[in-house]
Nucleic acid binder design. Structure first.
Lengths: 247, 247
DNA sequence: CGCATCGTTGAGTGTCTTCAAATTAGGTGG
DNA sequence: CCACCTAATTTGAAGACACTCAACGATGCG
């Protein structure tokens, strides 16, 4: 459990209802809707986005397998973000009441949940810094490295290669850029030999260079077993949950 | 407790050590340092900022009285953000062990803490959207409105007027702009009669217009007593804590 | 009163955007 | 399996918003 090494997404579904399939472009939950549940992401890609009055869409987070979806809005009356499937996938609903119950019945899991949320908050701080202060090149490098790292943790990379099922417009929405400029930036990195593309597949061909270009540090999580309240419902469930919380 | 109406910052300090004074420009905690505590903010202004390799500084959050400081880094081995006093003020340290204990001893407070953190996460999502997709004018309007609202909740506004002890460079660091452009934008809003300044004092002279300009919605928190686990240590402490958690 | 910090303004530059169109890829039905 | 249609990528050219560099003015503190 300590360092998120566990590998059973299945046990994590102890919290959730039966898995449900979602299709590409499908809206899981729209912003403004009342909040009554969160979701566990079992397979596929989902974007959490916000629509601005001017019609622009900002993707706030790109979710992958193992992530928890929609949790920020649990402190709100109406959801702040829209959850849209970027690919076909599988999700499992978790009624908020079940999350609530964790605090009484599984304080250890509740504490892990808090840590996971704080981790997400740091990721958002990184995003603010990247979007606010860095160039398109740097932002794109950080974006690719972050995805590579997260995908590696759930076994969805082949070495430096991984599948990136986002359109350049969606990448732009995530990075605060237009699709046109995303394209130019991607092609520049490609021309310089830092990345290689084949269809949706991206290979980080010069990782050291990309890391030098990225403005964001790699962060070390701190899941010290001693920190947390005593276990109640067994290490297996915890391991799965911790993995889910990586989102 | 339900809607954060309570008003005793003092009780919230039940969690914290004795108050400590900080002076303007003083660093409370530097990024990269090991994490062993958080802080409650009793008085003054504090910036949470991140330093990028290029030397740029991004202010990720401007903290005011009643906020909790440094909590995102509790999921990390080393702190992600630097906490710097923007004005003289008072803070109270809370060892992480005491936060940990909440989960076993006061699940209701722990649940409130999670909600407060999620609320902060939404604030960061708003920041990402604003910085990523909006103009300097819109961003500044949203910034002023947000501060006005938060300051009002802790009784630090006089109607539409409040004290804004940030330099234009600091405002720029928070909004992803240079101080020069912040200045031009502020003066434009001023020229158009939306705001009035006297020294550090700002008056939102045309609130409806500013709200129309701001790209961010006003968000309604959801602190439903029923949602939370049963109270353990009394409503008074909860009220104070909830207020603290607004940060 | 002098110095440092902060605010203000001008002029020129650059990164990214907007607008537009051509090319390529992907998916569906015949 | 090809034809077609839509979605996505790619490229060009022009424009805009915000940045950089620089200087001057105001403000406040010691």
């Amino acid at each position: 459990m300590a360092s998120l090494g566990a590998n059973d997404i299945a046990t994590l579904r102890g919290l959730g209802d039966a898995a449900v399939a979602v299709r590409r472009h499908e809206t899981i939950r729209r912003e403004g809707q009342p909040v009554d549940s969160i979701w566990l992401m079992l397979h596929g890609w989902v974007a959490s986005s916000m629509l601005l009055p001017g019609g622009q869409r900002q993707i706030v987070k790109v979710h992958i397998a193992g992530d928890m979806l929609g949790t920020p809005s649990m402190a709100l009356q109406r959801a702040a973000d829209t959850l849209t499937a970027l690919t076909d996938g599988w999700i499992a609903r978790v009624p908020l009441a079940r999350v609530r119950a964790l605090f009484d019945q599984a304080p250890r899991v509740a504490a892990l949940l808090l840590m996971a949320v704080q981790w997400e908050r740091v990721a958002l701080m990184d995003a603010v810094a990247a979007i606010g202060k860095t160039s398109a090149r740097e932002r794109l490098a950080a974006f690719l490295l972050d995805l590579h790292q997260r995908l590696t943790q759930v076994g969805l990379t082949q070495g430096a290669r991984f599948d990136l099922p986002l359109t350049q417009e969606q990448i732009g929405d995530a990075l605060g850029l237009t699709s046109v400029h995303v394209n130019r930036t991607i092609r520049a990195l490609e021309r310089e030999g830092m990345i290689v593309r084949h269809g949706q597949t991206v290979t980080l061909h010069d990782l050291p260079m990309l890391q030098r270009l990225s403005p964001l540090p790699r962060r070390a999580p701190w899941f010290d077993a001693d920190w947390l309240p005593a276990a109640i419902d067994g290490a297996v469930a915890d391991a799965g949950t911790a993995r889910a919380m990586r989102a």
